[in-house]
Each structure stands twice: as structure tokens, then as C-alpha cells.
Design a protein around this nucleic acid. Structure first.
Lengths: 186, 186
DNA sequence: ATTTTTATTAAACAGATGTTCAATAAGTGA
DNA sequence: TCACTTATTGAACATCTGTTTAATAAAAAT
């Protein structure tokens, strides 16, 4: 009852083909026709699995997001429930994660790419933050806004990092986050 | 030496056509061919002015951003240089601005739209924040990250607002921002 | 008012898209 | 191994894209 081997092979070839093409040109220039040609896959077959090149890329990014999810759980296992000053920068693995997949995030953060990837990342960071947040004095609505505020702020640092061509190390970014959070005079 | 009348008329017709079509279908479904048909403009002429439907929409959004720029300057004229606890929520006109152009921001924040619009908005908010920030103790680099953090956080509230279908009023959003900033225990 | 400049047009083009079809090949299950 | 199920294929289709061409129309300049 598992997935048909043919489907697995087809997707594998499309994945490889995308990775190869991404080394030659930006995502938005990759045509389905060329992608299929390289993968030795019929163009009609492509549409049986994906609606667009973007959907194929999203498939990749989904795996990367999964890695972020696991990476986040790691310090939780060691440090236990976390006595928080809520968001503890040491537990924020996000910057290491982004550095690890830098070449992907260059794409995810690029101008001509759909906002969908941003939302995928935002969603995962949001979930991570929520797990880290104890039930607070706020009502649920404000709680939602608070998390949205924090999650987006963190991505903001990542965007600025990308803007600066990822000059800093992941540790430096974490350090900067600490500095910002220490400055309570926002 | 001003702009040729024909160009103005062509762009006007394309603008009107886009607005009309946006009431019928999402931005990503609008074909250049249909757009030109409606506008009574030759398809070739379209390409003389814009590279894509997205570029045409960006033209609109540019005007909206300009409105945000001016709206922001308004309280500065009355209140003068601002003795800040840095970011003073009362001066943040952003939520009123977004509510005013709600139908546009529904598009700007939608999944299938390029990230470029997000960056346009982020850029303007960043500039606004920078004008409001006195030279601080931070070095320039951290300063840049701080502003990126804050600007994105504000957009984060707007994204959550959109997610909630703009239920709250602009005043409520400003109030929520105040609440969040008061909570120094981020 | 006439010349000069330049924007728009129609037509045509190769290429890409998205969809459908019957034929075929490959994998699954007994 | 053999029958069955289903993924892939190639071909064809209308449509959209992006670009180029010479002819024409409209605005600007004198």
C-alpha cells in the first residue's frame, strides 16, 4: 500500500533536475519544459504531480522546514520545559538552520518568488514560539498578535542578514537578537 | 519635456483595466492578453511600458506606498522632532493606512504574489522608523538589524490582521502594538 | 501649419503552457 | 508466474507569452 515506485523515481528525477538547473539560473527562469527534458520525464507527467515549478520547489522547502522543526525540538529535549524569559535566544536554532540551507534561503527571500514560502517559514517559527510560550496574562487574540510580532521580527533579522549577503555567522546573529531583546526600550 | 500624452493615456487605460479585472479574479489569473483587450491597447504596447502584470501592479502599489510616506510625515509636522521612547505607537499611522487600502493589501499579502511587494512595504516602514530613531548607542550594523526587527514585526501584526480578515479596527491594532511594546519581557 | 519625432498598431513568429487522449509500459498483488 | 492496476508516454490542441517588423497615427517642436 506504499507509494508506487514509478512515482518515487519520477519525483526524484524532477528533484535532481531542479537542483541542477538552480545552479545555472534563478528559479523564475526555469521552464517546465526544460526541467522535464533534463529529467527525462514527459511534460504531461510533471503535471500529474505538480502544478508549477514553484510547487516543486515548495516540495523541497517542505523538507527543509521539517529540518527546522526537528532542530528546534533538540534543545527542548536537553533543557526541559524551559524556564523562560519567554524567548530564549540560545534555544533559537533558526539562524543556524538558515545558514545551513543558505542557498535555499537566498531563493526563498528573493523578490520574484511567491510569498507562499515566506508563509511556510513563518508558520513553523510561529509554532516553535508557541511551544515555548507559557500561558500568559493576555487573551488569546493578543497572544496571537504577539507571536506574529515576534515570529516576523525574527524573519526580519534573517532578511537583513540575507541583504548583507550572510556576512555574519549564525552565532553573531543570535548575539544580535540577544542585544535587541535586552534593549527593552523599543 | 514632460511625458507624452499618449503614454499617459495608455497607462491610464491599463490601470483602469487592471482595477476592473481585480474585481473579477485574483491577480495571478489576470492574463496580459485579456488586460489589453479590455484596455483597448495593443499587446505589444503593453510591453513597451511594463514587463508583466506584476510590474503594472507594482506601479499602483508605488502610489500607495507614497501615501504611507506622507501619512507618516503628518504627525511629525505637528509634534515636532518627537521625544521618543523611540517607537511611539501614536505616530504609527501604518494601520490606518493599511485599512484604507485594505483591498490592495489583501493582494499584497496573498500567497501567490511575488515577495517584491513585501519588500516595497518593508522598505518604506524601515525609512519611517529610521527617521524616528535618534542616534543610539548601537553601532550602525546592529542599528540596521534593530530596525529590520521592528519593521518586520509591525508587518507581522498586519499579516496576522489580514489572516483574521481585518476584523479589528486600526485603533485596536495600534492598541495591541502598545500592549506588546509595554511587555518588556519578550 | 508643417516638419519632426515618437508612440501605437497589426501581423507574424517561435516557444511555453496547460489539458486531453488512447496506447504502452512498469509496478503491484495473488 | 500471470493477471490486474496504474503511472507514464507521445501526440495533438488552443491559448498565452515575449519579441520583432514596417506602416500609421498622434503628439511635440519649430
Amino acid at each position: 500500500m506504499s507509494v508506487d515506485l514509478r512515482i518515487i523515481k519520477t519525483k526524484e528525477r524532477l528533484h535532481e533536475s531542479l537542483i541542477a538547473l538552480l545552479k545555472e539560473m534563478p528559479l523564475e527562469k526555469i521552464k517546465i519544459s526544460v526541467l522535464c527534458q533534463r529529467a527525462q520525464i514527459n511534460r504531461g507527467t510533471f503535471y500529474l504531480h505538480y502544478a508549477s515549478v514553484d510547487a516543486l520547489f515548495a516540495d523541497f522547502f517542505e523538507q527543509i522546514i521539517a529540518d527546522l522543526r526537528e532542530a528546534y525540538l533538540e534543545p527542548l529535549r536537553t533543557k526541559s520545559p524551559l524556564k523562560i524569559k519567554e524567548l530564549d535566544p540560545k534555544t533559537v536554532r533558526i539562524f543556524h538552520h538558515i545558514k545551513k540551507y543558505e542557498s535555499f534561503y537566498r531563493i526563498v527571500f528573493s523578490k520574484n518568488v511567491p510569498l507562499a514560502y515566506y508563509y511556510m517559514l513563518l508558520e513553523q517559527i510561529t509554532v516553535n514560539l508557541q511551544q515555548n510560550t507559557n500561558v500568559s496574562s493576555y487573551d488569546e487574540r493578543v497572544q496571537g498578535y504577539l507571536v506574529a510580532y515576534q515570529a516576523n521580527a525574527i524573519i526580519g533579522l534573517a532578511l537583513q542578514w540575507a541583504e548583507r549577503d550572510f556576512q555574519e555567522t549564525a552565532e553573531e546573529l543570535s548575539e544580535i537578537l540577544v542585544q535587541i531583546l535586552r534593549t527593552k526600550s523599543e
